[in-house]
């Protein structure tokens, strides 16, 4: 009886200690992200906003970095190392954490291009075989599951990502984006990136 009680007591101590320990590890992981992505995860220079991003998309991207499938230069330089030691459970927790933070729009595109960008976003360019972005990313560019939220990301990040689909880099998972982006002109990319940077 005494031994059982002792074991129970020991277990209780262990169990009580475990969540606190996990919490510390979690906040350390979050801090590792926010060094670059900003303390409220709104993005900073080349690091995109994570706040409000679709959780499933964040998870897919983290695995894409860890397995080196997503291979654009910034991913290689920063994210391959940053994700090398992440456990599955940490990836899931980080994705849920950042998805739940309220996003703020970057508002840093060219205002005069936003109208053209909105037209391409919602109607596509049928005569040039450009599909409407809205069909997959939603009417408010909010994304769904592993399709990312685009609304309010920074102009420079959006522009670069659209350009990179044409430069032979790979995404974390197969997607129609290389086909879509191939038919976009440089002006159309700027218009889309401008429009999306203002979407809240």
């Amino acid at each position: 009886m005494k031994r059982i009680a002792l074991t129970l007591a020991a277990l209780t101590v262990l169990l009580a200690a475990a969540p606190a320990h996990a919490g510390d590890a979690m906040s350390a992981s979050i801090r590792n992200c926010t060094w670059c992505h900003g303390t409220s995860a709104q993005g900073y220079t080349v690091a995109p906003r994570l706040a409000g991003q679709q959780a499933r998309y964040l998870e897919t991207q983290l695995y894409g970095f860890a397995t080196h499938r997503r291979d654009n230069p910034a991913s290689k330089q920063y994210m391959w190392n940053a994700t090398a030691a992440l456990k599955d459970s940490t990836i899931r927790d980080l994705a849920d954490y950042f998805a739940a933070l309220p996003p703020r729009p970057a508002n840093d595109g060219h205002r005069d291009l936003a109208g053209r960008g909105q037209a391409i976003y919602s109607q596509g360019i049928p005569e040039a075989n450009v599909a409407a972005c809205l069909a997959c990313h939603g009417p408010n560019a909010q994304g769904i599951r592993d399709i990312p939220r685009l609304g309010g990301l920074s102009y420079s990040y959006l522009k670069q990502r659209l350009e990179q689909w044409n430069q032979g880099y790979h995404g974390a998972v197969p997607s129609p984006m290389p086909v879509v982006a191939r038919s976009l002109s440089a002006d159309e990319v700027e218009a889309l990136a401008s429009y999306l940077s203002f979407v809240r």
Partner: peptide
């Protein structure tokens, strides 16, 4: 090109 466009979605 048109087929590819349709199959995008």
């Amino acid at each position: 090109a048109k087929l590819e466009y349709c199959l995008t979605c």
